[in-house]
Design a protein around this nucleic acid. Structure first.
Lengths: 208, 208, 208, 208
DNA sequence: TATGAATGAGCATTCATTCAT
DNA sequence: AATGAATGAATGCTCATTCAT
């Protein structure tokens, strides 16, 4: 069996165990057993428990980010991009609950190196949203003055709301990704739209 | 020294240590030392490490909830109540970073009993917001049909956004509680208002 | 059982195990078992394996040095002091073979801190002999020019010879401490005496 | 590359690593890496860690013995032979510090098989000196009765003194091999000479 | 009641050694 | 013959918890 695939098995197992038990409570023995390999092999491949954890976090962060990026088409209008990005986000977190738990629950509470990965992920996501807002606002002409700092604040709030809904959707199977998107867009698009479009779409929510 | 005050010292110390190190990494020795009591006394008063942790979570959750409740006046209009509640929330989390870390970072990741406390806290906060929305919507007449489930979703998103901004404000001293409130209200009030007022109050952002 | 005596038992056991197996081969478990205490207690009392080893070395070095010092009377003539010191040295090393093994065999080969203890012990012993030689030479008048460096060299050789004979005597029960003293004095006194007495001591130290 | 030379490289590396770290602390990995060969090859050639160590000890013991033997001319007078042998001894130990460390510091502290090699080396050296003394004494006629046992004792002391001076010279570059020889001869020759020369050669230190 | 002392269980990590090629 | 890969065994150490006073 090639090394790469063995290593992936180990990471899979590690994400599962770390996601369920947290860093300290997770035993290297359990991870090795779940991966079906002798425990020293885990050390041979991934050096130490901390390195293994950081590798998990990095992989899951990368996967989530890729999912979000992959769900968005660059040329689309801002609202479309936002909806698509959120949809991809919810779909990914719901489909990978342990990875999401590692990122959202455990990685921030453990050593610097793993927390940094999460900070980087958040920075990336916030940046994505911020860029979307800023560039759309620029297209909208000078109508509304929206500074960089304000945009970042809005993006922080948006990402936080999305995380919360991801947990909500993850814990209740009756909540679909699509519903989470609608909920979040209903709540925030009216506040966002005026900054992003030249003419207020005469009634913001046209209900004839 | 009366038992109650000794016990409070222990909880203070425990919140500090748990908040900084997390559940597993925190050593009972450290907590006892910081509290200035011999370590078996902690067991005598709080039974076990897990019980101690749950007690911390319960106390901090209660304090946060009390702060939010205390910041709101019942008769005020919905927007006022929301703003005041958020302000109290941000102020409390910023002023009690270790307690906030225990609640936000660690409590959800450790055993059922502590996670339950956080769920209860969230349920309470979400309920607060939900009741605000629902009752305001009821006052607004049948204008907009907003079901309980939709209201819960919105509240979840709102609370999540608030948590995110609390972390943001906690990590950057230049961000005031007031700015966090504005940011969140700017983002979400336009989406909320139509449901809460009889007449869509002359479009929130008047664009002639 | 008082702490001091428990700790001594641990050191006794440690000296035995370290003396027989060397530092790395010695297992903390073995030491604890031989001492009749649970293994974490050893860590509680003596912190770490290295600290335990250093404590052993320090104790054995101190004991050997005390034995040598205790065997010598300050006012006696140089030859008498040398004989008595050597006798005490051989007697002690033969009676405490494991302690001697720790000092002579293992302590110099392990970390700095333990090697330093041995260096200190040797420095002390060499200093003892050097002072004996130098002061006796001074008493002898300017007859023979014996510089400090030469005296140190002679002392180094003497101590080395003594160590070798200690191993010899330790390995062969038929060799008594007294015989080891005679052997070493026969070999070295004729070379030493001329430096230490004004007139080739028809009686070396005339006591009228 | 022929097997013999590969094997020598391994022994070279092993002596370096063993000399610096001691038996247990030395890792087969380090030795293999320093020798520039894959680690299983070391096992293939030298069977096991212990065998490798014994091979090192045997080689270094042989080299030291050869150096001493090579420094002495058989027909020379006893004093000359002793001086030359010591000179060769000091020169070799100073020039091969790691080999000397293996022999003097580590080999005696590890398993029987390596300790035996050191015993054999010492026996050889002691035998060399003993034969020198005994045969010179025999030449000297019955003047002094020097039994075998006495001769062995003297030789033990002499070799021990030499070892001590070797360490002294090894640790202080200002001490030359020649100075070490002088020091040791000054100390011991007066005690040795009477046994080795027909007529106590007009007392070594003339006492009228 | 309160405390100094003790202990049993668990865990990450290292290393010599051996397969499978 | 020679090597990359794998593994079983062992070890130092920490910590929550409980006695004995």
């Amino acid at each position: 069996m090639p090394r790469a695939v063995r290593e992936r098995h180990m990471l899979d197992a590690a994400v599962r165990v770390f996601g369920r038990q947290g860093y300290r409570a997770a035993a290297m023995d359990d991870i090795a057993e779940l991966a079906g390999v002798p425990q020293p092999l885990v050390h041979l491949y991934l050096r130490s428990k901390e390195d293994l954890f950081v590798a998990c976090v990095r992989r899951e962060a990368g996967a989530l980010l890729a999912a979000v990026r992959g769900g968005v088409r660059a040329g689309d209008p801002a609202e479309r991009q936002l909806r698509d990005g959120l949809h991809a986000f919810f779909q990914h977190t719901v489909r990978h609950p342990e990875g999401w738990a590692v990122l959202h629950l455990h990685a921030r509470a453990q050593g610097e190196s793993s927390a940094d990965q999460v900070v980087a992920l958040r920075t990336e996501l916030v940046g994505l949203v911020t860029r979307l807002i800023v560039s759309a606002a620029r297209d909208a002409g000078g109508a509304s003055a929206l500074g960089r700092r304000e945009a970042v604040g809005l993006a922080q709030a948006l990402v936080g709301a999305a995380e919360s809904l991801a947990v909500w959707a993850g814990g209740d199977p009756s909540v679909t990704a699509r519903e989470a998107v609608s909920t979040l867009m209903d709540l925030t698009w009216p506040g966002l739209a005026p900054h992003l479009s030249p003419i207020p779409p005469s009634p913001p929510h046209p209900h004839p």
